[in-house]
Write a protein that binds this DNA or RNA. Structure first.
Lengths: 346, 346
DNA sequence: TCGGGCGGTGAAAGCGCTCTCAGGGGATGA
DNA sequence: TCATCCCCTGAGAGCGCTTTCACCGCCCGA
């Protein structure tokens, strides 16, 4: 197999030059006379030489790869278009800088060790982390190993906000949620329930806060609050709970489109019409929103762009200025706006 | 940052032993006296030593990582649950062998170079390739670089079948399609249309062949055949075409659930009732099938398990026998069965 | 004609790790 | 008590690459 991949040495011998010269040519050819460079290039092509990445990164201390770490089971990562979109933006930005994307998924508690070792082992130049819960050990692992890291969503662990080095990309969850609930109020709804995401994630907590803001209360009516986990099944269950507790509710704000579509299913099976009996608003504006029956009113955040920004931030942190970014832009967290999109469900 | 990661040397000095001993301990500790081993382990912990992967793989010629190459735009990869499931199986199998999964997506023609270089550069020990079209250059690139590779789906390029080394995992697409169409015939349908996937993929071609088998014809009625691209949008368009060409059709077999759900949308918008007016059968039995309204009759293939098998095949090819596999099992392509699942749409 | 400068090239020193090989010491058998 | 063997351990040679540093011509100005 890998049998006898030619080495620099071999190319040098073939071209009748030294290893140093070949190395220079392979890395751009600066400072090598044209005639020689062409001779070397011919040899490289003739032998089918490809640099050995291990040897190279051993000396350069760079790998040209970036890890995307998602602390969720594959089930969610791949069924939730949120990640898909995010990854898409990331992947696009990275490949523009010729950097490889490495996807690491953490499923169980035991994976933390493996991934921690991987990150610390110098396999990657930096990391992008998502979907972290408040007590997740990953950030401190990354921090301990000194790996440059950018987070998706505002980190929620204690003291996170005080770290001036901290880099993240978030969206205005609180404002978006407020818009959603205000919209329901304008539609004349009065018993508005909420289905939250896991509250140890800032995005879920912020959306709940936005709900409270809109209603002008400091504490939500417990009968109108149910907790989901950002999945459709969770939304289905939460909606059932809500209907049991508050049969008179006339609207529900779900913390994600997936949960909203789950809620839709429960409502349908319980014979409630949407939006006549119960208005539904989701969050994210991903595919399931537009496809749901009826099409979901939701809060739009440009997830793909957020992914792109995360990657951009990291690349700049690594000193690989992505094109189109003035190099004097300060390296700081980014918060993008959210916007209500009204469809048929409200 | 990576500032001063301790090296083997440092640990050796700290523990008062030689590099060789530390290396042995780090790699399992075989052949090192217990007392010494514990001393070394303490030093490793005290210094927070993590082996440098580049140095290690430079000498071992192994990276502990495997690439999954998908020649489809991210859009599809992440919105099509097919890949999600497949990846899930793969990821599960790989992590059992402590092997990292590296996801490489090819979007445009230009990505081929980058990925080709990456694969040839020794970043990974092997590759898993999916969703290849007949003239895809990737297999020959992998072959040229001698990278052990397992394919998802029976490869369709000329001469592929003759390669005794070729490893792939496929499902009985032809048989599954035949079952689907026979089922429609049993239901009394007579004008059965088909929406194919891209015919330069063997899976799509095989499913079309199965359709013909069931109908007992050598060539399908062109008015009843439309081509999609395995996406929901494609299914939507194809269904519209079919209705225009053959308004009298009473059933449609779609080459994937996603295309079937697109077809469902078109049928709904054209006012055809499913299954009363038109029966619909999909293929794959992934989430969209069960969720569709009405729930889709479809052909089940255990995609996740296929992923697992692909990974298993590759690991064995790499000499990392996954647990539970008798080591004398011959290394050969696998074809899994397909089974009809009847739901509401037919 | 000669000295200084400069662009281009090669020799060689590692990067951090694994692994072979040789040697040292303790235990064992006579 | 001495020789033999075996178990551990350490020294050292690379893995393939980058990069510094010294050097060799060559061209220029004087």
């Amino acid at each position: 197999m890998h049998g006898h991949r030619p080495t620099l040495e071999a190319v040098a011998a073939h071209a009748g030059v030294s290893r140093a010269t070949v190395s220079r040519v392979v890395n751009g050819g600066a400072g090598v006379r044209k005639a020689l460079r062409e001779r070397v290039e011919a040899s490289v092509a003739a032998l089918g030489y490809v640099p050995n990445s291990a040897a190279r990164s051993l000396v350069t201390r760079r790998t040209g790869a970036v890890a995307v770490v998602i602390a969720e089971p594959e089930t969610r990562v791949f069924s939730d278009p949120f990640f898909a979109q995010q990854l898409r933006g990331i992947s696009r930005e990275l490949s523009a800088c010729d950097t490889q994307l490495l996807l690491l998924l953490l499923e169980g508690r035991t994976d933390y060790d493996r991934v921690g070792r991987y990150l610390a082992g110098g396999h990657v130049d930096g990391a992008l982390m998502f979907s972290l819960h408040r007590d997740d050990p990953l950030p401190s692992m990354a921090n301990a190993s000194g790996l440059p890291t950018v987070f998706g969503g505002r980190p929620g662990w204690p003291g996170a906000e005080d770290d001036p080095e901290l880099l993240y990309v978030d969206t205005d969850n609180r404002g978006g949620a407020r818009q959603a609930v205000e919209h329901l109020l304008e539609r004349g709804r009065r018993r508005i329930a909420v289905i939250t995401g896991p509250l140890d994630q800032t995005s879920a907590q912020d959306r709940l806060d936005g709900y409270r803001d809109a209603l002008g209360v400091a504490e939500a009516d417990p009968a109108l609050v149910a907790h989901g986990d950002f999945t459709a099944e969770g939304g289905e269950r939460a909606m059932a709970e809500l209907l049991d507790r508050s049969p008179d509710l006339d609207a529900v704000f779900a913390g994600s489109d997936l949960m909203a579509s789950g809620a839709l299913r429960t409502l349908r099976s319980r014979g409630r019409r949407v939006p006549e009996d119960v208005a539904v608003v989701g969050y994210d504006d991903l595919e399931p929103a537009a496809w749901a029956v009826p099409a979901l009113t939701t809060v739009r955040q440009d997830v793909q762009d957020m992914g792109r920004m995360m990657a951009g931030l990291l690349l700049r942190r690594l000193g690989l200025d992505p094109e189109g970014v003035p190099s004097d832009t300060p390296l700081a967290p980014v918060v993008t706006p959210a916007r209500l999109v009204v469809r048929d469900s409200s």
